[in-house]
Computed example of a mutant assay.
Amino acid sequence: MAKHHPFKWRHFQLDIILLCMRWYLRYALSYRDLEEMMVERGLSVDHTTIYRWVQRYAPELKKCCRPYLKTTTNS
């Protein structure tokens, strides 16, 4: 069987989805801020769409990235 591709059947390309999610998760931006930033770049993305992307894909990204994070101490 073929491996399930999580971004299949999405209206926007993978790099746009990941870019919006990265900016939202990394910086203190609101969904509406990201919507405005995408409009400045010529993309019409609604803030609720970005919200849905974050809700859907953030847990999967966390699972994929967790093994590569450096461990820290509480000192």
Score class of each variant (00 low, 15 high):
H5C: 10
M37I: 12
P6R: 04
A28Q: 14
D33R: 01
L69N: 03
Y24K: 12
I16N: 07
D15K: 14
S44P: 00
M37D: 03
Y68P: 02
Y27P: 09
V45F: 06
R56H: 03
L29A: 07
M1I: 05
V45P: 06
D46E: 10
L14S: 12
A2D: 15
L61R: 05
K3M: 09
L69V: 05
S30R: 10
L18N: 04
T49Y: 00
W9H: 14
C65Y: 01
K3D: 04
R10E: 15
R26W: 00
M37Q: 08
Y24P: 09
Y57T: 03
Y51H: 11
N74I: 14
K8L: 13
H11L: 15
D46G: 08
V45N: 04
C20E: 11
P6Y: 00
T71K: 01
Y57A: 01
Y24D: 14
M1N: 07
A58E: 01
L43I: 13
E36L: 15
H11T: 15
T73M: 07
E60M: 02
M37H: 07
P59L: 00
E60H: 06
P6M: 06
L61V: 01
W23Q: 12
L34T: 04
A2N: 11
Y57L: 02
I16C: 11
S75P: 07
I50E: 10
T73A: 13
K63N: 01
H5I: 09
A2S: 12
W9V: 06
R10L: 11
R10A: 10
R32E: 15
T73Y: 08
T73H: 11
E40G: 04
L19S: 13
G42Y: 12
R41M: 11
K3H: 06
E60Y: 01
K8V: 07
S30H: 08
F12R: 15
A2V: 09
F12Q: 15
Y51W: 13
K70V: 05
E60A: 03
Y27D: 15
R22K: 14
R32I: 06
H5L: 10
H47N: 04
M21T: 09
S75C: 05
C65E: 00
R10F: 07
Y24W: 05
L18V: 04
L29Y: 13
K63V: 04
L61D: 08
K70M: 11
H47S: 11
D33Y: 03
I17T: 13
D15M: 12
S44W: 03
I17G: 12
L25P: 04
E60W: 02
T49N: 03
T48E: 04
E40L: 10
M37V: 14
Y31D: 13
N74K: 12
S44N: 08
K62H: 02
E35H: 13
F7C: 09
K63L: 04
Y27S: 03
F12M: 12
R10G: 09
C64N: 02
G42F: 12
